[in-house]
Amino acid sequence: MIILVVFIVMALILIAAAIYSIMHRDLLFAVMGTGIVSLILSLFFYLLQAPDVALTEAAIGIALTTIIFIITIRNTSRDEDEIIDKENEKL
């Protein structure tokens, strides 16, 4: 019974994190949403009896994908519509 509740909660968190990740305007929060999707997905793979796939998704999706997205955001703009950067430049 507990496993059923955990299952449903995990599926809802997955969809909620994906929607938050594409809707939010600040790009740093969107990248954190992608990290949460990878984390819950790795737990899903463990429940479906696939330990190798869970290990690979945890190692690549959480650590490396997040860091290369953050490096890209540092070199481009942080805001999605680039309004704050243009105001800073005018000042």
Binding site: P51, D52, L55, T56, A59, I60, A63, L64, I67
Partner: peptide, 17 residues
């Protein structure tokens, strides 16, 4: 055990990071 080349290589790269 569960693991292998790709998983282990990624863990070492995280240590270097």
């Amino acid at each position: 055990t569960p693991g292998g080349g790709f998983q282990g290589g990624t863990i070492v790269a995280t240590g270097f990071l």
